[in-house]
């Protein structure tokens, strides 16, 4: 048993209280407040982080369930000095307004592009088999768990499309 959670490459001890969600562990226990709490009920996506390569809502899982896991948060994707391609694209396309849903959108999009690259189908896909063509509709469907009340969706999709287009046609 490792008894630690690795976040952005650093190992942290597990919290004592088993009720602590992964989200509160990140925000309150290790001070990584880039991950946001919008609902605490898996309804908004603001808390999206990447665990062992897969995006999840960190409010819907207890920290205690992630012994030995590797978590990537928005702070692990890029920094103001060295932003990731998606972070830069969000800035350029104004893919946010208040910025509160933004870390979740960017973490979600980062992992979503991997899912697309691995040809995981979605409701918007033509077929369950074979290659998935990247389209606005695919991106919208796959990002629909990330709410943005400021209504920056059109710009968020433009930002993701730019980065997706750079990777694969």
């Amino acid at each position: 048993m490792a008894d630690t959670i690795t976040v952005n490459g650093t190992a942290y001890p597990m919290p004592d209280d088993p009720r602590v969600s992964l989200l509160d562990f990140l925000r309150q226990h290790i001070g990584l407040t880039g991950t946001k709490k919008g609902c605490d009920h898996g309804q908004c996506g603001a808390c999206t982080v990447i665990v062992n390569g897969i995006r999840i809502n960190s409010c819907l899982t207890l920290a205690a369930m992630h012994d030995g896991d590797s978590v990537t948060t928005i702070e692990g994707l890029g920094t103001p000095e060295e932003p990731s391609a998606l972070q830069r694209a969000f800035l350029e396309h104004d893919g946010f307004q208040c910025g509160y849903c933004t870390p979740g959108q960017i973490c979600s999009a980062t992992a979503m592009l991997e899912e697309l690259a691995a040809d995981w189908p979605s409701d918007a896909s033509e077929s369950l088999e074979g290659r998935i063509a990247i389209s606005g509709e695919e991106i919208r469907e796959r990002m629909s768990g990330n709410l943005c009340r400021c209504g920056a969706y059109a710009n968020i999709v433009a930002a993701i499309e730019e980065v997706a287009g750079g990777g694969r046609s």
Binding site: L32, G34, E75, G99
Partner: peptide, 13 residues
Amino acid sequence: PRIEGLAKVTGTA
């Protein structure tokens, strides 16, 4: 682009 934008997209705001 927004002058506070980098802080928002990197979770440092």
